[in-house]
Design a protein around this nucleic acid. Sequence first.
RNA 1: GCACUCGUAGCUCAAUUGGAUAGAGCGCUGCCCUCCGAAGGCAGAGGUUGUGGGUUCAAUUCCCGCCGAGUGCACCA
Length: 574
Amino acid sequence: MPLSQAPLPLLEHALGEAIKKLDLDPSLAQITPTNNQRFGDYQTNAALIAAKELKSNPRDLANQLIAELDLEDYCDPPEVAGAGFINFRLKKNFLEQQVASLLHDPRLGIPLSASPRTIVIDFSSPNVAKPMHVGHIRSTILGESLLRIARFLGHRVISDNHLGDWGTQFGKVIYGLKNLPPQAELAEESPIEKLVRLYRQVTTLEREDAQLRDVVRKELLKLQQGDCENRKLWEEVVTLSWREFEKQYALLGVSFDEHLGESFYHEALQPLVQRLLLQGIAKRSQGAVVIFFPHHPTLHDKPFLIQKSDGAFLYATTDLATLEYRVTRWHPDAIWYVCGAPQQLHFEQLFESSRRLGFHLELRHIAFGSILGEDRKMMKTRSGDNIELGSLLQEAIDRAWKIIDEKNPLFSQEEKKKIAQIVGLGALKYADLMQHRMTDYVFSWEKMLAFQGNTAPYLQNAYVRSRSIFRKDESLQSFFPSTLLLDEEVERTLALQLLQFAEVIPNVLVDARPNILCLALYELATKFHRFYEECPILKAEKKVKESRLALTEITSRMLQLGLNLLGIDVPEKM
RNA sequence: GCACUCGUAGCUCAAUUGGAUAGAGCGCUGCCCUCCGAAGGCAGAGGUUGUGGGUUCAAUUCCCGCCGAGUGCACCA
């Protein structure tokens, strides 16, 4: 029997053999889990699809396939149902053995990728000296999760935080540092708060004073031309900001292999533009340098501006230079950009341009929708500002603390603090990840922190419940039954879910959708709860007790692993 | 004007990428702790998947038209 513990490859292999014997299209050897127990555990639509090509009867074809199928080691005899579906139901003792073997497998049956790739993931990308807003939060959480999953599957992943450290905000901040009086009453503010305050003050002042805008622009120009004083201020600002970001990333459990900001590519921009002009990829137009896509179906009327008429470079220029650098530095098979949906046009243009430059790797914009307030508009504070990451994280922790304090007042202060962090931040991350990434979703503290429904606290609680039984009795820690007993329907249902977990993880990366993993975890927790209610463990007879403990053990490890792949921690008590 | 994304239960969202009777949570109506965490579980009510066509044995999913929402489109990032 093959090493893989997931049933799907076994079934597909057997189906493939049968298809070969009947001389049908080998790509039809596809099997999916059923969505309803009535139809067994797995189904294939192969006969339906093949019958269409051959213009024959699908049910007859299905019966012919079944006759050639050799899977009696692990499957009850398959049945033809409906229009020509073939339904498979795993044998009880096969299920029992396979699930038992998960006990010895630290990967819980999840195979390494057969074709590991080198992937650069670009995510988070906050702007230095500007408050991080909700868009960055989604990018950070989503990016980190994809990174963890890709690494777990054996890919070589480089995470690169493309900091906005060279933008127009520096004109404002430098002007503010030079000209705005220090405010005594705010002496206690942190350096980063001061930068944000200056940024906002200058933004406000500019709105009323057109002349000031020119002064601010000149400060930026001076910086970019290498002015000594501005350069020094810039360095301080970048260092301070990064130190602050690092604190927040540590809290979130996020880390980067690189954080090469826009400034890193500054020197490369002029030569890049020259080269693009020389190769005829870009053209001069109205004083600026532009890439056109005259033959592209949707981009023909959407020029890509890479140098302004005043000589300054743009976002697009830096992104092209960055792409080029990454290709030569890492030789990646893919670069993924975790960035909001509004920038889809930009990435389409960027990718099209890079193909013209001769880069033919996979370039993927992993877009996501907006986070909305209860009023269904982009989430803002009451005063209309963007919500800052720091305050959001703190509120999540504070709210979780209140709930824990209410439910478990006897926990020590230290325990409460630790649990509040795990639960609060977990809830925040999970609320984001469980959503289909393209949907704009309404942010709600009540919902994400609820113990009912598809939330992190619900999953964390399932984990806590599963661990609590092992605290009852230390001797329960070491047991490894070589096979299980799955006599109750709820046990079988749980066992199947445990086995199918391995099939879910690789699917997450197909379309960069951690919400598939969330759904699997939620179903796992639900099925576990049902099992835990219905099946007594400690009182059960020895063999049954061991089997049920094993199910509990595997469930808790799977919840922990799955949440970890989402960047979410689990508490032992809550 | 062009492009992108979306429209599913009263509300917030799913639907394993074209499969069988469209599922959860909240809210609503009832149940279940002399048993490991009730921070849980069970059952019920709730739907013409915005709308009209098309492709298919099969469409929430793919194609076209309309209606509605959000976002973006030459010197911000």
